[in-house]
Amino acid sequence: MSLAKPVMRGLLAKRLRLHLPIAFAVALTIAVGVKYGITEPRKWAYAEFYKNYDANKEFNSMREAGIFESVRPSGK
Protein backbone atom coordinates (compact mmCIF):
# COMPACT_ATOMS: atom_id res chain seq x y z
CA MET A 1 0.00 0.00 0.00
CA SER A 2 1.37 3.42 -0.95
CA LEU A 3 0.53 6.89 0.22
CA ALA A 4 -1.63 9.13 -1.95
CA LYS A 5 0.16 11.95 -3.69
CA PRO A 6 -0.40 15.40 -2.19
CA VAL A 7 -2.51 17.80 -4.21
CA MET A 8 -0.16 20.57 -5.25
CA ARG A 9 -2.22 22.18 -8.00
CA GLY A 10 -3.93 25.31 -6.73
CA LEU A 11 -2.47 24.93 -3.23
CA LEU A 12 -1.19 28.53 -3.07
CA ALA A 13 -4.51 29.98 -4.25
CA LYS A 14 -6.42 27.87 -1.74
CA ARG A 15 -4.16 28.93 1.13
CA LEU A 16 -4.25 32.61 0.10
CA ARG A 17 -8.03 32.56 0.02
CA LEU A 18 -7.92 31.78 3.74
CA HIS A 19 -4.86 33.65 4.96
CA LEU A 20 -5.06 36.91 2.98
CA PRO A 21 -8.29 38.20 4.59
CA ILE A 22 -6.97 37.18 8.01
CA ALA A 23 -3.73 39.09 7.39
CA PHE A 24 -5.62 42.21 6.27
CA ALA A 25 -7.91 42.03 9.31
CA VAL A 26 -4.97 41.69 11.71
CA ALA A 27 -3.08 44.55 10.03
CA LEU A 28 -6.15 46.80 10.11
CA THR A 29 -6.76 45.99 13.77
CA ILE A 30 -3.17 46.82 14.68
CA ALA A 31 -3.27 50.07 12.67
CA VAL A 32 -6.46 51.21 14.41
CA GLY A 33 -5.00 50.21 17.78
CA VAL A 34 -1.84 52.24 17.18
CA LYS A 35 -3.83 55.25 15.99
CA TYR A 36 -6.18 55.36 18.97
CA GLY A 37 -3.84 53.84 21.54
CA ILE A 38 -0.67 55.82 20.82
CA THR A 39 -1.10 58.60 18.27
CA GLU A 40 -4.28 60.26 19.54
CA PRO A 41 -3.21 60.37 23.22
CA ARG A 42 0.15 61.81 22.15
CA LYS A 43 -1.53 64.52 20.07
CA TRP A 44 -3.81 65.33 23.01
CA ALA A 45 -0.83 65.56 25.38
CA TYR A 46 1.01 67.94 23.04
CA ALA A 47 -2.11 70.09 22.66
CA GLU A 48 -2.54 70.26 26.45
CA PHE A 49 1.12 71.19 26.93
CA TYR A 50 1.09 73.98 24.38
CA LYS A 51 -2.19 75.51 25.62
CA ASN A 52 -0.39 77.25 28.49
CA TYR A 53 3.18 77.20 27.14
CA ASP A 54 4.92 80.56 27.01
CA ALA A 55 8.03 80.36 24.85
CA ASN A 56 9.35 83.76 25.92
CA LYS A 57 9.03 82.90 29.59
CA GLU A 58 10.85 79.60 29.00
CA PHE A 59 13.57 81.36 27.00
CA ASN A 60 14.09 83.96 29.73
CA SER A 61 14.35 81.30 32.44
CA MET A 62 16.93 79.37 30.40
CA ARG A 63 18.82 82.59 29.69
CA GLU A 64 18.89 83.44 33.39
CA ALA A 65 20.15 79.93 34.17
CA GLY A 66 23.09 80.50 31.79
CA ILE A 67 22.26 77.73 29.33
CA PHE A 68 22.90 79.89 26.28
CA GLU A 69 26.47 81.02 25.70
CA SER A 70 25.59 83.66 23.11
CA VAL A 71 22.91 85.44 25.15
CA ARG A 72 23.79 87.44 28.21
CA PRO A 73 21.48 87.36 31.23
CA SER A 74 19.54 90.58 31.59
CA GLY A 75 20.63 92.95 34.34
CA LYS A 76 24.24 91.74 34.46
Rank of each mutant, 00 (worst) to 15 (best):
G75A: 12
T29N: 00
E58I: 04
P6E: 11
K14S: 09
A31I: 12
S70A: 14
E58A: 14
A55E: 15
V34C: 08
A47Q: 11
A31P: 00
R63H: 03
P73I: 08
N60C: 08
A25K: 09
S74V: 14
A13F: 13
K51R: 05
S70R: 07
I30L: 05
S74Y: 05
G37C: 00
R72E: 07
D54P: 03
V71A: 07
L3C: 09
L20P: 04
D54N: 15
E64H: 02
A4W: 04
E64N: 00
G10V: 13
D54L: 00
L18D: 10
F59E: 02
K14F: 00
I38F: 07
L3D: 14
P41E: 02
K57W: 09
K14E: 11
L20I: 12
A25C: 04
I22C: 00
M8W: 04
E69D: 06
T29H: 02
A31C: 12
W44E: 03
S61Q: 15
G75V: 14
F24Y: 07
K35N: 10
P6N: 10
W44G: 00
K76D: 11
R42V: 01
E48W: 06
P6Y: 09
V32D: 10
E48A: 06
M1P: 02
H19F: 05
R9L: 14
F49V: 08
L12K: 14
P6H: 11
Y53N: 03
V26G: 02
R17N: 02
N52A: 09
E58T: 12
L16V: 07
P21D: 14
F59W: 12
T39E: 07
M62K: 12
Y50I: 01
V71R: 01
P41Y: 02
A65E: 13
Y53E: 03
P21E: 13
G33Y: 07
G33H: 11
A47F: 06
W44H: 04
P21N: 08
E64W: 00
M62L: 12
K57Q: 11
V26Y: 01
M62C: 11
E48C: 03
R72S: 12
I22S: 05
K35Q: 12
F68A: 14
P21W: 14
R9T: 15
L11S: 03
M1N: 03
E64Y: 01
I38E: 03
A13I: 13
P73L: 12
G33L: 10
K57F: 10
S74M: 09
K57Y: 10
E64F: 05
G37H: 04
S61N: 13
L12C: 00
F68H: 13
S61C: 04
L3K: 08
H19Y: 05
A55V: 14
G10K: 13
